[in-house]
């Protein structure tokens, strides 16, 4: 049963991240997932200090708020002439350092393990169950990750047209009257929420890998946006399940293996994807040149 829960939760994380990753990659903001996953640390610490417990919900709220705040700071810096990559790194390193300082200042009050926050362990998700009255509702992480996945899916389906247009042609979107900034922050809010909800159970590194690798792989296979979204989910699920099946015989970190599997899938597509792969490009070129002119 435990392997089923792990694969299911991994797949749900991969699907949520895969959808959002497509937007991030096309908007050239791929590093934002990494930045947010570091920047929310002070939010987690504040939520912990205020609520005084390790309940998931206050942490989710605090971290999401700080994640949104960090994207607002990044955007403000960019508007004031700071180079995009510099704005990103300055913001997330500063916020992360603030979080570490807060943890070491309140080290007696906080029973918060830095490694655990950043590298959460997917192998233990099945033990942390949600009790509703006498009813055992299954792993808590499943509800959290599944809820966030449904929320993301709902928002994307409702505003698919708007998201598509603001991603591909923000100037046209603004001219047509779509509030571009609102959709930017809505997307950033979704990325923050997904990062926070997933990484408590699966760890930051898997979230960053799942945000980028499946979407990048899908980008090599197709030129159509809705196909890219579905392929990205497919590749995400494949790397979650494949990674787990790889981790069991190796007796290694499951999250690490899932990230590795996503990398292997990307490498395969980088070489053999039908139109944009290296081998197939070479093959087409050779056929073209050997054709009698």
């Amino acid at each position: 049963m435990s392997s089923f829960w792990i694969m299911l939760i991994g797949s749900l994380v991969a699907s949520s991240c895969g959808i959002l990753g497509c937007f991030l990659i096309l908007r050239r903001m791929a590093m934002l997932g990494d930045a947010i996953s570091h920047a929310i640390l002070p939010g987690i610490v504040f939520a912990f200090l205020i609520s005084g417990s390790r309940e998931s919900f206050p942490m989710l709220v605090g971290a999401t708020l700080v994640g949104l705040l960090s994207t607002i700071i990044i955007q403000w810096m960019k508007q004031n002439g700071v180079q995009a990559d510099a704005a990103l790194s300055v913001t997330f390193t500063a916020l992360f350092a603030l979080g570490v300082i807060l943890i070491s200042l309140y080290t007696r009050q906080i029973d918060l393990d830095l490694d655990c926050v950043l590298y959460g362990e997917i192998a233990y998700v099945q033990w942390d169950t949600w009790q509703l009255g006498d009813l055992n509702m299954g792993p808590r992480a499943l509800w959290m990750v599944g809820g966030v996945f449904l929320l993301n899916l709902l928002i994307i389906l409702l505003f698919f047209k708007q998201f598509k247009l603001t991603t591909f042609d923000p100037a046209l979107a603004a001219a047509v009257g779509i509030p571009v900034a609102f959709f930017h922050y809505l997307l950033m809010g979704m990325v923050s929420l997904t990062t926070v909800a997933s990484f408590e159970s699966v760890g930051a590194i898997l979230v960053v890998a799942m945000l980028i690798a499946p979407a990048a792989t899908a980008y090599l296979w197709t030129d159509r946006f809705h196909l890219m979204l579905s392929l990205s989910i497919l590749f995400g699920i494949l790397s979650a399940i494949g990674g787990y099946l790889l981790a069991v015989p190796l007796d290694a970190s499951i999250a690490g293996c899932m990230a590795m599997m996503a990398g292997i899938l990307f490498l395969f597509s980088f070489l053999f994807a039908p139109r944009h792969g290296l081998v197939s490009k070479w093959w087409y070129q050779r056929k073209w040149y050997s054709k009698p002119q």
Partner: peptide
């Protein structure tokens, strides 16, 4: 995208 990909996959292999 290449930066993020390399970061997460290399780090994942490192964790393994």
């Amino acid at each position: 995208t290449a930066l993020g990909l390399v970061l997460s996959v290399f780090f994942g292999i490192g964790i393994v």
